[in-house]
Simulated scan of single mutants.
Amino acid sequence: MQATCFEVRGLSIRLAQCDITEADTEAIVNAANSYLKHGGGVALAIVRKGGDVIQRESDEWVKRYGPVPEGEVAVTGAGKLKAKYVIHAVGPKYGDPLGDEKLARAISNSLLKAEELGLKSIALPAISTGVFGYPYRRCAEIMADVFLATAGKLKSLRTVLVCLWGSEAYEAFRSVFLEKLRDYISSCP
């Protein structure tokens, strides 16, 4: 597996071209829509691998609390996945005037939810880069900025795996992270 690693104020960040459903982390993040209908992309792959229980729990969550606003998160179990939890992060559609702010909140709230749950590790996808149309580079810039702003505030969360599907996504993120986090490059374990 191709990987590039960084260490930001005690937070180990690993960029890898990989399948998030295979991540060996305590939680994985799903790039979700507000109604938590997992019909395509990362969401569908997670439900296929983890089982229908993830969709059922998602439906219950929405029934109980209502749609998840853009930038916010919901949590369900992870079914048959290696992870304990799926954190469903609702990102914005590209072109939304407040899109960058909402995407930053979706990423940040995913990390903070993992922290609230007392988790040590989480896997993140490139939120909003699928059907929501965000360019890889812009998502990577926002994600790197969130890591810089949030890393020092995290107590339990120690490891973030950024799972990127395909070489185009991996190379875009790697390029941006090497620019923005150049002072934090570390060797991969």
Rank of each mutant, 00 (worst) to 15 (best):
C163L: 07
I107D: 01
L103G: 00
L15C: 02
I28H: 02
Y85R: 00
L154S: 15
K80I: 01
E60P: 09
E116K: 10
S110E: 01
V8E: 05
E101Q: 13
P189H: 10
G41F: 00
P67A: 13
K155T: 12
D183F: 15
L164S: 05
A27E: 06
D19L: 05
K80T: 11
V42S: 08
H88A: 05
L103F: 15
E116N: 13
R182L: 09
P69D: 08
V176S: 09
C163S: 15
I127C: 09
F6K: 06
E26I: 00
A43V: 02
L36E: 05
S58V: 05
R138E: 12
V131G: 10
E101T: 13
R137C: 13
N30G: 08
G152R: 06
E101S: 14
S187D: 15
A23R: 03
R14L: 10
Y65D: 08
L117F: 08
G10Q: 03
K49I: 02
S175N: 14
F177R: 08
A106F: 15
A16G: 13
V90M: 02
A144C: 00
A114C: 03
I87C: 08
W165L: 15
K63R: 15
A16E: 15
P125A: 07
E115P: 00
G40Q: 09
V68H: 04
A172P: 00
A106V: 01
G10L: 08
P125V: 05
G133W: 03
F6L: 08
I122M: 04
A3I: 07
D19C: 08
V73C: 03
Y136S: 12
L36S: 03
K155H: 14
A27R: 08
A45W: 02
P69M: 05
R138H: 09
G10S: 02
A104H: 06
V73W: 04
A27Q: 09
A83D: 01
R158H: 02
G79E: 07
V8T: 10
P92N: 02
Y85F: 11
E171M: 12
K153L: 12
A126G: 10
L112G: 09
R48C: 01
Y94A: 15
A23S: 12
K155C: 11
A23M: 01
F6G: 02
G95I: 12
R56F: 04
L161Q: 00
S186E: 12
E22G: 11
G77P: 01
L148P: 04
V90L: 05
V42R: 02
F6Q: 07
G79F: 06
K63V: 10
I28E: 06
K93C: 12
G41P: 03
D24T: 09
Y65N: 15
I142G: 03
Y35Q: 15
Y170T: 05
E22D: 14
A31M: 07
D19N: 11
L148V: 02
V162Y: 06
G152F: 08
S121N: 03
D19W: 00
Y184T: 03
C163H: 07
